[in-house]
Design a protein around this nucleic acid. Structure first.
Length: 901
RNA sequence: GCCGGAGUGGCGAAAUGGCAGACGCACAGGACUUAAAAUCCUGGGUCCGUAACAGGACGUGCGGGUUCGAGUCCCGCCUCCGGCACCA
């Protein structure tokens, strides 16, 4: 295929220009803006600008990538192109745009590579970053590179460690619903408390705490994982089996924020599906805790239920096999069976345990509990369908109205008692919804919601239970047994009695750098690799360093805050910069709280997006940030599939490398195609033929502007010299058909229809239809004999966000050699004039009984009556009405006429 | 099972309740060319029909409904994609 236009020279030229001129540098309040910067010229803002003088801010953020060794694939630039178009559009609209990029570089692949090669992961990370950066820059994105971040850079992770210290030094005060300094935690009881007891009490309340509870251990990866990283009993990364195992680990108390994380969703502009995923993960359910005393002992079983109204229907109870009461309540007669069952359950993997099709299993403990509502003695079983990790690890079983309990009751011949009548009056076992209580003593006759109220009140008065809310969300397991992550700023010490305790390092000790290691390999027993660096671990005073590292998510929890400034070793971010860019300080009307637009993949729905909201809430409570939510509007770009419609993967061999596309068609065509494929949020297959389509469009734009002869001369000179000479681009002349002539009404209409459509589509992120509007303009304009320069100039302004290199080159030609400004990036966005779009005459379809039969042409302002008359008189209409009576004529002026017979 | 999202030509797709298929790909025909590529022009949902032009019927996953009028709204299904799942 013949080259459509010299995109390689044009694109290289403008990328260099933007870089050298710092065209896309974003300006913070208080910074000195050079007078010759196009931003200063546009806004008349040379010199120092305070926040209230700067224009309205717009913060457009991409989820920063993990720089893998494989380089960029075509999925990365999809979101980046969308955000770049918006960033350029907002600049043209007059906003101060923050559009940064960085590297989320701690993580497993670099470490695994280090294990194989013995090379320090920092070196591979550096190499990968430079590949990613070159690829990303080759697409002409308007990032402010002066704010680049690398999470593995000590200047950055110093502040990740610092935020950990803030978590460590805080507790969640339920009375205020906020995080507060740990020093403010009231001491328990009266009078003086022993230092040892006080320390333990505080440690049990910190937002970062140590726990010995069972955690997910992945032997293959040699580390523990968070709930969010385990999918169907396997690791999210690599798909290796994980097992439950008690280990001493650092946890973050995200559960304290469950309600806030839920509530916060109401105020932000995210897709309903994404919000729903977070809601499901948090898993709030309202219900009651009910206490069932045991018949033969002083102990009692606490259960959680969302259906306290069915208490009269509880015919047995079930403890999870791990429940702490199991051993003490089991009778001698049942002990052998219970032990055997527990052993069997412990042997099973979690995958097997949660196997859905599995038949229910369980064993009777021999014990009986007393139903508080009717003093009935009901048997206590253990079964693995009750999970230790949810609620209280015990349930009251109401087989008539719970499908799992029913299955279990049928298998073990336990009684089933109906206590809810369906709204249609039927009484049926297995009815799960709301109805009316029956066979339920003082609840009988009450609709379910009222019955719930009544019984909960009764339980509270009797001291047998209380209203409560339960969450599926678990605390965040925050430590990993890996090398390539942030070390914890924590020391372990022993008190005079020999008890081990932890202590935070002071801020002055940050950053805590990881030690040099020969061997990065994780261990099979969970001993972190850092423990091998004995010189690093052991301090002269006898204390030892924490050897776990933070998970990959730590660095990405707050990077968007770091972007609000440039490198600053004295604080995690400046309050004035944070206030301006996160939108809490003056910056014009309509400023949104948080990042204005955040674009990234859906895969982080319950990982990064939940974790960073949690950190942000804590930082907000502690007064370090000014908004409660980090990301105001969030959009997930859809996956790009291979040409075969399958997910791109190395093994399928359907991966498309952007470098090849760029070489063949250039960055502008690549950007345009990624956006033209379809709506941003949809899943869509790649088709390289489609790139040719938009490439041809750019060729048409080029040929519309340039003089054919001068371009032919240019091409021949290039071929003759055998090398690409960027200077020669200047010899290509504008087409003689472009003149400073006034535009005809038809030309203006074409232009303003295009302005309207592109403006509306960019506002709504409909890039595919914005591009088709540009195509329609070119298809018409290419036929014009005289091309008014002013019209084409506005067209280039519309093209600039989407295909910036070509637009800049043609704009420079149009402006002529005397023009002073080097870039069009800050030229004001064109406005459309609705008056120019008004038609003098309108063609309207005429339907008979809803079927299109004819068309009429009427004056734009024609009355309904006149339109009706014209429709009835239209050529093809009278024959169709013959012998029939017209019942009604619907006239929608400007739209259509429908004659009903 | 539950919660989201989607289903429109050969393909990617477009359509404030108002002419279904804009724009693009692929395809076919033509112009230019010694030829090809590139470019430019033309065509196109399906079926019936005609020498041709006309003309007609059907058509947005399926079945109903509301409406003068439904791809769009409502009810009931089917299929695909994503997420959650013995969560009491």
């Amino acid at each position: 295929m013949r080259r459509q236009y010299p995109f390689d020279l044009i694109e290289a030229k403008w990328r260099r220009f933007w870089q050298e001129q710092e065209t896309f540098r974003a300006w913070n309040p208080g910074e000195i803006i050079p007078g010759d910067h196009p931003f200063a010229r546009r806004h008349g803002l040379a010199g120092e600008a305070s926040a209230d003088r700067l224009p309205r801010k717009f913060y457009i953020l991409d989820m920063f990538p993990y720089p893998s060794g494989a380089g960029l694939h075509v999925g990365h630039p999809e979101g980046y192109t969308a955000t770049d178009i918006l960033a350029r559009y907002r600049r043209a609209c007059g906003c101060n745009v923050l559009h940064p990029m960085g590297w989320d570089a701690f993580g497993l692949p670099a470490e695994q590579y280090a294990i194989r090669t013995g090379q320090h992961p920092g070196r591979t990370t550096e190499a990968n970053i430079s590949v990613f950066k070159r690829q990303i820059q080759s697409l002409g994105f308007s990032y402010d590179w002066s704010r680049e971040i690398d999470t593995t850079d000590a200047h950055y992770f110093k502040w990740t460690q610092w935020i950990f210290l803030q978590l460590y030094n805080s507790w969640f005060n339920p009375a205020t619903g906020k995080a507060e300094p740990i020093d403010s935690l009231p001491t328990p009881g009266e009078g003086a408390v022993a230092p040892e007891a006080l320390r333990q009490y505080r440690d049990s309340r910190r937002l970062a705490y140590v726990s010995d509870a069972p955690v997910w251990w992945c032997e293959e990866l040699g580390t523990v994982l968070a709930n969010e990283e385990v999918i169907d009993g396997r690791s999210d990364v690599g798909g290796f089996p994980v097992v439950r195992r008690p280990m001493r680990q650092w946890m973050l108390r995200i559960t304290a924020y469950a309600e806030r994380l839920l509530k916060g969703l109401e105020k932000i502009d995210w897709s309903e599906s994404l919000k729903e995923m977070q809601r499901n993960w948090i898993g709030r359910s309202e219900g009651a805790e009910v206490v069932f005393p045991l018949a033969e002992s002083k102990e009692a079983i606490m259960v959680f239920t969302t259906r306290p109204d069915t208490l009269f229907g509880a015919t047995y109870m079930v403890l999870s096999p791990e429940h702490k009461l199991v051993d003490s309540i089991t009778t001698d007669g049942q002990r052998a069976a219970v032990c055997a069952y527990k052993t069997e359950v412990a042997r099973k993997s979690d995958l097997e345990r949660t196997e859905l099709a599995r038949e229910k299993t369980g064993v009777f403990t021999g014990a009986y509990a007393v139903n508080p509502v009717n003093a009935e003695k009901i048997p206590v079983w253990i079964a693995d369908y009750v999970l230790a990790s949810y609620g209280t690890g015990a349930i009251m079983a109401v087989p008539a109205h719970d499908s799992r309990d029913l299955e279990f009751a049928r298998k073990f011949a336990l009684p089933v008692r109906l206590v809810v009548q369906a709204p249609d009056g039927r009484e049926s076992t297995g009815f799960l919804g709301d109805g009316v209580s029956v066979n339920s003593g003082f609840l009988s006759g009450l609709p379910t919601p009222e019955a719930k109220e009544r019984i909960t009140g009764w339980l509270e008065r009797m001291g047998a239970g209380r209203r409560t809310v339960n969450y599926k969300l678990r605390d965040w397991l925050f430590s990993r047994q890996r090398y390539w992550g942030e070390p914890f700023p924590i020391l372990w010490k022993r008190d005079p009695d020999g008890n081990l305790y932890h202590e935070a390092l002071p801020e002055s000790a940050l950053p805590v750098l990881p030690p040099a290691l020969e061997d990065y390999k994780p261990t099979r027993d969970g001993q972190p690799p850092l423990a091998r660096a004995t010189d690093w671990v052991n301090l002269p005073d006898g204390s030892t360093r924490e050897t776990n590292t933070m998970p990959q998510w730590a660095g990405s929890c707050w990077y968007y805050l770091r972007f609000t400034g440039r490198r600053d070793d004295s604080r995690f971010c400046r309050a004035d910069a944070e206030g301006y860019w996160m939108g809490s300080s003056p910056g014009g009307a309509g400023v949104r709280p948080g990042v204005d637009l955040y674009v990234g993949g859906i895969e982080h729905a319950v990982l990064h997006l939940l974790y960073s909201r949690f950190w942000h809430n804590v930082l907000f409570d502690l007064g370090y940030v000014s908004t409660p939510e980090p990301f105001f509007k969030l959009v997930n770009q859809g996956l790009i599939l291979g040409e075969d419609g399958q997910k791109m993967s190395k093994s399928r061999g359907n991966v498309v490398n952007p470098d090849e596309i760029l070489r063949e068609y250039g960055a502008d065509a690549f950007r345009l195609y990624e956006m033209f494929m379809g709506p941003l949020e949809m899943v869509k297959p790649w088709n390289t033929k489609g790139v040719e389509g938009v490439y041809r469009f750019l060729g048409r734009v080029w040929r519309l502007f340039v003089d054919e002869q001068s371009e032919t001369d240019f091409e021949q000179a290039q071929t003759a010299s055998g090398q690409d000479n960027p200077e020669a681009l200047g010899r290509i002349k504008l087409s003689a058909s472009i003149r400073d002539t006034p535009a005809t009404p038809a030309q203006l209409k074409t232009l303003h229809a295009c302005i309207k459509k592109v403006t509306e589509d960019l506002e709504a992120l409909r890039f595919n239809t914005a591009i088709s509007a540009l195509m329609i303009f070119i298809n018409e304009a290419i036929a014009w004999d005289d091309k008014p320069a002013a019209v084409l100039r506005d067209f280039l302004l519309l093209l600039q966000p989407l295909a910036p290199h070509l637009a800049e080159e043609l704009y420079a030609k149009l402006r002529g050699p005397d023009a002073t400004d080097g870039t069009m990036a800050y030229e004001p966005w064109p406005k459309y004039d609705p008056a120019l779009l008004v038609e003098k005459t309108i063609e309207m379809p005429v339907q008979v009984n809803g079927k299109l039969r004819d068309k009429i042409v009427v004056a734009a302002g024609a009355s309904a009556k006149a339109i009706e008359a014209a429709a009835l008189g239209a050529e093809k209409i009278p024959p169709l009405l013959e012998g029939k009576t017209v019942k009604k004529v619907i006239v929608v002026p400007g739209r259509l006429v429908n004659i009903v017979v």
